[in-house]
């Protein structure tokens, strides 16, 4: 098992955002988390690499407990890619330098090795020709692809995607999704929070439906879409389909 999440709890003031979330992820699997906004999906992702510290519960990456205070969280984070909703590319760095920074400063690669690796990853997301461009000179879709390249370059054991297409204009969503589809096919382990039901249906090995800080239901897409076990799941899927269209 690559990732195991056990009974995660997180509270912001009075509001309990995560109320005991448990699930696991096998190597090479893609799981998609869906659910209404404000139900703790993003918080869950951030608790997994401890960008947000969970109040209670444990997270294991290949049997190393990364929620243990003894663990060097920077070493762990280097093994977990994170793709943000609003990209968060480093504004002052070119696409190439965005991808190189972690390679040089975290992984200790030489500048030459890092450049070679970074160019490879930029090519993989179709942006080799944009290596010298600054984030502000790229479209949203291109920025998100660079941020995926930045995550990929670190050679992560899994990548967490936090609504990677939600900040994009509709016509730019496709290019990001197709990069993600390719990634999933290549065997990358992925945990994706998204409203893109088409992506969820065609790529996910399993879909997790979350609401109000708990997992309501999880299962293969076929089952979840065709025979949801829980009325809340059915209700959510009906509404999201109206909003985004059947195949996304």
């Amino acid at each position: 098992m690559l990732l195991r999440v056990e009974n995660l709890h997180k509270r912001y003031g009075k509001e309990e955002v995560l109320r005991g979330v448990s699930f696991s992820l096998e190597k090479g699997e893609t799981k998609v988390i869906i659910g209404p906004s404000g139900t703790g999906k993003s918080t869950l992702l951030r608790c997994i690499n401890r960008l947000t510290e969970p109040d209670r519960g444990r997270v294991f990456l290949e049997d190393v407990e990364i929620t243990s205070p003894r663990v060097n969280i920077n070493k762990i984070r280097a093994q977990i890619g994170f793709v943000f909703q609003d990209f968060n590319l480093f504004t002052h760095l070119t696409a190439l330098d965005n991808v190189r920074l972690g390679l040089i400063r975290v992984k200790g690669l030489s500048k030459r090795e890092a450049t070679q690796r970074a160019l490879q990853e930029l090519a993989r997301v179709g942006l080799a020709d944009k290596a010298k461009a600054y984030p502000a000179e790229l479209s949203g879709g291109q920025q998100q692809r660079v941020s995926i390249a930045r995550a990929l370059a670190m050679d992560p054991k899994l990548i967490l995607f936090d609504e990677p297409t939600s900040a994009l204009d509709p016509e730019l969503i496709g290019e990001v999704l197709s990069v993600m589809v390719e990634l999933a096919k290549s065997g990358m382990t992925m945990l994706v929070v998204t409203h893109e039901m088409g992506f969820a249906r065609s790529v996910a090995d399993e879909i997790i439906f979350m609401e109000k800080g708990v997992i309501v239901e999880q299962g293969p897409p076929e089952q979840l879409f065709k025979r949801p076990q829980h009325p809340r799941t059915a209700e959510f899927l009906r509404r999201i389909t109206e909003l985004y269209g059947g195949e996304g």
Binding site: I76, F84, N88, H92, L101, V106, S147
Partner: peptide
Amino acid sequence: VKSGQMLAARALGLTRLQAIRYVILPQALR
């Protein structure tokens, strides 16, 4: 400097000090 910059740096595995040195200060000084 937008808060996402620090988040993205930490998510890569940079220490807080490295994030300040390589991400925050180069932007802030400009």
